[in-house]
């Protein structure tokens, strides 16, 4: 019994200096391990008289509980100390740059091209495409350009080397309107497409690039009028520039539309109130699209009855929209592929 009391007195001081897991286990074993002092005493239990056994058993249990409690307390203390150590380590300098995966940049032209396409697709248009090289038949004749007409000067054309082959001249398409022909030849109306793509003109100055991107629209069905054209482009302009944008439609000329119009959107920056506006230059209007009703000759050139079907077509310059959206100071930057330019957007 005395030995038991001595052990009990030892418990607290034994666990107090414990500094780590290993010491904790060793200390615990000093009492309750195979050779532990308490274990030793308990091993002597059978030698005791039955009357003593009960009291002694109770005492042993009391001491055992004390050992376990002290051990547990020491463990909690150790855990807290460890936690505190981990939390109190030297803080990371979070002003250092993050370890990040590289973020790629889609070319600004394609961002705009896809945004514009998505707007039209959401309005029920499907996407059509044609080749970038074509014959003058598809680029001009079937679109109603008269031969030897000054309208041809509106589009300075890159012709291709024909290598002496017979047939119509070949060229790089000057507009995505070639896809009108290809679409109209591919199936009978109804037709409702947009055709995004690359086009080429023999023109290179501060405001023109010899290669640029356009998106063409074409709707041919029974009962289509200029009002449908306007409604379509007005909805488009509102989705692209904002819902407060209004439109105006004015006369223009394209050989393949009649009547031909320009559709302008009110300036989304100044609303026409700033004479020095960077966007509209004070006019209050932005040219959105050249458009018009499909010239009957285009329909009949593609075997479609212009008395039965009418349609509208429009063309938008993607480069200009990209320049507006990203405030690109000059068009050649769009084709510079200068990483500093690409990664600025």
């Amino acid at each position: 019994m005395e030995a038991l009391d001595a052990i009990e007195r030892e418990v607290d001081s034994a666990f107090a200096p414990v500094r780590d897991e290993q010491e904790l286990r060793a200390t615990h074993a000093k009492f309750l391990g195979k050779e532990g002092s308490l274990t030793e005493i308990m091993r002597r239990m059978p030698e005791l008289a039955p009357a003593e056994k009960k009291t002694f058993g109770q005492a042993v249990n009391r001491v055992k509980t004390a050992v376990e409690a002290a051990s547990e307390a020491a463990e909690v203390r150790l855990r807290q100390a460890a936690l505190a150590r981990e939390l109190d380590r030297e803080p990371t300098d979070v002003t250092m740059p993050g370890r990040r995966p590289r973020v790629g940049r889609q070319h600004p032209l394609h961002r705009v091209l896809y945004d514009v396409t998505d707007i039209f697709v959401s309005m029920g248009f499907d996407v059509a495409e044609g080749p970038e090289s074509d014959w003058e038949t598809n680029n001009f004749e079937r679109l109603g350009f008269p031969p030897d007409h000054p309208a041809l000067d509106m589009q300075d054309t890159f012709f291709l080397h024909n290598e002496g082959r017979p047939g119509p001249r070949t060229l790089l398409r000057t507009h995505t309107s070639t896809v009108q022909i290809r679409e109209l030849l591919s199936h009978p109306p109804p037709v409702m497409i947009v055709a995004p793509g690359t086009v080429f003109r023999c023109d290179d100055d501060a405001t023109h690039s010899p290669m640029f991107a356009q998106i063409e629209g074409l709707v041919v069905d029974e009962g289509i009028s200029l009002a449908h054209l306007r409604g379509t482009l007005a909805t488009f302009a509102q989705r692209l520039f904002g819902k407060d944008v209004t439109t105006r439609m004015r006369g223009s000329y394209f050989p393949f539309t009649e009547p031909s119009v320009e559709l302008d959107a009110s300036c989304s920056v100044c609303g026409g109130r700033d004479p020095h506006c960077r966007l509209c230059k004070g006019s209050g209007w932005l040219e959105v699209a050249g458009a018009g009703m499909v010239d009957p000759i285009v329909l009949s050139n593609c075997g479609i009855d212009p008395e039965k079907y009418t349609g509208f077509a429009f063309g938008l310059g993607i480069d200009r929209l990209a320049m507006i959206r990203y405030q690109v100071p000059s068009i050649e930057l769009l084709y510079s592929n200068d990483e500093r330019f690409l990664r600025s957007l």
């Binding site: 591919s186 199936h187 037709v191 709707v219």
Partner: peptide, 10 residues
């Protein structure tokens, strides 16, 4: 435009 649901051919 009453959407015709027409798919592109080209």
């Amino acid at each position: 435009v009453p959407s015709s649901g027409a798919r592109a051919g080209a």
